[in-house]
């Protein structure tokens, strides 16, 4: 048995150093998540980080907790499987715009339907960074990439509107530019019971599809009087063309997967057992 090598006051691995480019937005997310879990006084054995593939996929290697690095786009089903076996763990699932919104985009709706009690962080850098600069589902229309030499001719997704349609029980957007706000949002997301989605604008400093300078120009916090239980208002802000709003868009309390499974166990206890049903056919 190895003893913990790094100082207990950090969740950042001392053994494996990130290979992200200097200035990458993903460092901000790593730092904010580290601070959040420290503030919440979690221990490494209480947390599991699940990741898929891409720059975001490395995240699980860099975090001092249980970690599971799975297949491309399937971090959510993998985390769902883990969570059903270990409901006591705080599961943080990490993906990017390629992993989470392109190849794995179909899983978000179903994690939302199950309301799996986990936090899904999507770090959107608007590009495929690890494979060196191909278009992603959130690369702006017209932007030139390795696979769009004449400019991207598909429209960019509106992920927040998508998440609202799926009725995800906690939806927030934040940016790597403001650590304090990201930490505040992550804290609320982790404390939220059910599926929480934290969508982080995490600029790629190498391929610059949406650089920090541009991000600062277009983002603005949601108005203070935004009612986070008002889904139609949240849709309105999600569809805003002139401003990319940040903050908590929507939150709803509902039963989560593990609670629903407990109900199923109770129903199975009081209903006829399979052997009783089989006995009737003897």
């Amino acid at each position: 048995m190895k003893t913990i090598l790094q100082k207990p006051e950090t969740f950042k691995s001392s053994r494996i150093k990130p290979v992200w480019c200097p200035g990458c937005g993903d460092y901000g997310v790593l730092n904010a998540l580290d601070k959040t879990f420290k503030t919440l006084e979690f221990k490494p054995e209480n947390i599991a980080v699940v990741s898929g593939i891409g720059c975001s996929g490395r995240f699980s290697h860099y975090f001092n907790s249980y970690s599971l690095h799975g297949t491309h786009g399937r971090a959510l089903p993998t985390a769902t499987g883990l969570k059903t076996v270990r409901p006591d763990l705080h599961v943080v699932t990490v993906g990017g715009d390629g992993d989470g919104l392109s190849i794995g985009g179909g899983h978000i709706a179903h994690a939302a339907r199950k309301n799996v009690d986990l936090t899904y962080i999507i770090m959107d850098n608007n590009i495929y960074g690890l494979t060196k600069g191909q278009s992603s589902p959130t690369t702006p229309l017209g932007y030139t990439t390795k696979t769009a030499p004449y400019g991207v001719y598909e429209e960019s997704l509106n992920p927040i509107a998508m998440f609202l349609s799926y009725d995800i029980s906690f939806i927030a957007r934040t940016t790597s530019a403001d650590m304090k706000i990201m930490q505040k949002i992550l804290t609320e997301a982790i404390e939220h019971k059910g599926f929480s989605l934290v969508y982080v604008m995490s600029p790629c400093v190498t391929y610059k599809a949406l650089p920090y300078s541009k991000l600062k120009e277009i983002t603005s916090p949601l108005p203070e009087d935004h009612d986070i239980s008002d889904k139609m208002a949240a849709f309105k802000y999600a569809y805003s063309e002139e401003t990319m709003y940040t903050g908590i868009f929507y939150r709803k309390e509902k039963s989560c997967l593990n609670e629903r499974l407990q109900e199923v166990f109770q129903m199975a206890e009081t209903s006829k057992t399979t052997s009783e049903i089989m006995a009737e056919f003897k």
Binding site: V50, L68, G70, T71, R74, P77, T78, A79, T80, G81, L82, K83, T84, V85, R86
Partner: peptide, 9 residues
């Protein structure tokens, strides 16, 4: 992939 997660646990 759910199998992957559950087996890992």
């Amino acid at each position: 992939n759910m199998v992957f997660g559950a087996s890992a646990a």
